[in-house]
Design a protein around this nucleic acid. Structure first.
Lengths: 195, 195
DNA sequence: TTTATTTTATGAACAGTGTTCAGTAATTTT
DNA sequence: AAAATTACTGAACACTGTTCATAAAATAAA
């Protein structure tokens, strides 16, 4: 029983790791079942003994990438005082991560979650992730009465919308034309929101 | 010479019209070369005598949908006074159009423009479209000194970012959960921007 | 240890995708 | 009417995700 479970989790891990590797390097469009299976060291048919379809496999990666992104963001936060200042730092690091890995960006913001079972769950993981990263700092702002609770809710929503909008426009519509201008744009929007 | 050109444009039109029809009804994922060609009344191979590949064909549709969207927006503008009020009406109608046609939304905001030749051109058509729709009203605001020129530039940028962000989150991440809440969100954001 | 049973892994096959190309059909020019 | 050019098309290729019967391996029973 226990052994079986361990072996199954290990096998799933091989396929998930292979998928993550391809997503990070080549991106979503280069991903294929045969591709993944070869990197995992198994036949493409074996994959279907552990995942109902490739979409399930792909969205298992979301959980891992969330943690990877969280670690990336936290590594850029040392010495930054909690509150408004750190929210800005979190947002910048968060966006930097997705700019660095366009495949993960596409997975998080572009790819349609057609699966009915886990669609809402996965969407929630993605949509509330930034808010989760900033949770402590919003709490600090609330405690220090920097913003009202209603304000905070509005600002959280604005951050989610603006990061999504800027990332999509920059990554897929080349607007603005370079990364520096993109960061300037983020900072300008943050000035407005956090004032 | 002239006749050849006319015939060629007609043929292109058949394929473009077929593509538009599928995009509006079925969406991007249901689009295929054989699909398009059948609706156009020709073999799939014939398509390649008029377009280098299917991506070129698809992005010819952007021009047509822009005009269709423009007409849709303008039909919802009768009696609305120019300026701030009409900017809000334009944004709402603009977003309504894309919510109505998810396939066109995907084409405008999601699909990667990989083609090197027309990539920048098509991206520009999409990115500056909303600004173009509001141009007259921003001019009115500028003339009436409602906003400074610098403010207007910032607000235009904000509108582009926020409409993109909200549409992506609503259409692909089911956030917020229903259309009414989505419109409320847009209005709240517009309150902030246009104050 | 040998046999029987269950579990796991796999390649062939299917229906779909975009694209290329040789060849046929239609049109235009001579 | 014959020759040359142009337009159209189905077969074929290399992919895609997915299913399934079968072969291989591991486990259980004798």
């Amino acid at each position: 029983m226990d052994k079986k479970e361990l072996q199954e989790q290990r096998m799933k891990g091989y396929f998930i790791d292979a998928t993550k590797e391809i997503l990070k390097s080549e991106g979503l469009k280069s991903l294929s079942v045969r591709n993944i299976a070869e990197k995992a060291g198994y036949s493409f048919a074996t994959l279907y003994n552990y995942f109902p379809d490739v979409k399930h496999l792909v969205f298992y990666c979301v959980r891992d990438f969330r943690e990877e992104c969280r670690a990336y963001v936290q590594s850029r936060l040392e010495g930054v005082t909690k509150g408004k200042k750190r929210i800005r730092a979190i947002v910048l690091a968060y966006m930097e991560y997705f700019v660095q890995y366009p495949g993960i960006f596409e997975l998080f913001f572009i790819e349609k979650l057609s699966d009915i079972d886990h669609q809402k769950e996965t969407a929630g993981l993605i949509v509330h992730f930034l808010q989760e990263l900033c949770e402590e700092d919003w709490a600090v702002c609330a405690a220090k009465k920097v913003y009202t609770d209603v304000d905070i809710q509005l600002k959280q929503s604005q951050l989610s919308i603006i990061t999504t909008g800027i990332l999509v426009l920059y990554m897929h519509r080349n607007t603005p034309g370079n990364y520096k201008a993109c960061i300037s744009l983020v900072n300008a929007q943050m000035d407005q929101i956090l004032n």
